[in-house]
Write a protein that binds this DNA or RNA. Structure first.
Ligand SMILES: [Zn+2]
Ligand SMILES: [Zn+2]
Ligand SMILES: [Zn+2]
Ligand SMILES: [Zn+2]
Lengths: 148, 148
DNA sequence: TATTAACATGTTACATTATAACATAACATC
DNA sequence: GATGTTATGTTATAATGTAACATGTTAATA
């Protein structure tokens, strides 16, 4: 357990400054979606967001949600968990980083850990193959400390 | 370039022995799907398989394909590339292993590299968090040697 | 101040990916 | 030949994601 309000406040503050830095607008819609995502440390699907958002505002359609998610992801404010087709707030949007996601199958908590891709065993493989990496998907599925 | 017929033959041989070891049946349907997947080193979607298979045999429905894919995956004969929602033959179905997939955005070639999860930086993170890993999704998206 | 360009959001209609639930077949064992 | 098990077929629908075009909003710029 932790004071999650701190997480939310921090995330929203970060978002403001990141968007400012990137010269991008953090509109009310984008803020609302980001806040919904930060409701928990569990990943949420686009259609969960769609439902939640449609309660708060008038009915929204899928493109609205997907576009907003795209914006947030491009600006490093959220990540997509590919193995779950779901989205989660980025814990470190200010830093340029790769991430390792630890995904608990029982409680759904997702822990994002920084990983400076560059000298890991994965990068050894990348280099050995003369591969030019552009993005990484690194997800570990299992049970978190509390759940096993 | 390489003699891909060798890859196919090897894969089908391996499949036979793996299924025997696992006491599982490699039925004609399952063989057909595996062969279709091994048509190339590029990942194929379930619905591509559905289309191909429906040409070879009588029309098949999605559950037939998804069930077969599930069987093949459970027996370690194929892998799902999560970031592409597509499937690819496993190059090393006989060994118990983790994999790193190098996915070329231009030519779609997917290189599977073995990675004995256990002492990598990812596992350091796993251990630090007292996380009990069950499966890994490790995908690097970029450009292969030939394409950059 | 009208005009334009840009960006953001709304709307409609679909495409793609995946699964639930139930029915039948195929085969082995008793 | 009844029974259980595994594999496959069938129908229907759920869940995820996008293309294309319309409208609104704001801020230069003519
Ligand atoms: Zn929190
Ligand atoms: Zn947990
Ligand atoms: Zn080959
Ligand atoms: Zn390539």
């Amino acid at each position: 357990m932790h004071d999650h309000q701190v997480c939310i406040n921090h995330a929203m503050q970060m978002a403001k400054s990141v968007c400012k830095r990137n010269k991008q607008e953090l509109t009310p819609l984008r803020q609302a979606v980001l806040k919904l995502i930060w409701n928990s440390h569990q990943p949420v699907t686009a259609y969960q967001i769609l439902a939640d958002l449609s309660k708060k505002r008038k009915m929204v359609a899928p493109p609205t949600v997907y576009r907003t998610l795209e914006f947030l992801e491009k600006n490093g404010l959220i990540h997509k968990i590919e193995s779950l087709k779901a989205f989660i707030g980025c814990s470190h949007p200010d830093q340029n980083h790769g991430s390792v996601f630890l995904i608990c199958r029982k409680c759904n908590y997702v822990q994002e850990e920084l990983d400076m891709h560059g000298q890991s065993n994965i990068d050894k493989i990348v280099n050995k193959n003369i591969f030019l990496p552009q993005s990484y998907v690194i997800e570990v599925i299992g049970f978190c400390k509390s759940c096993h």
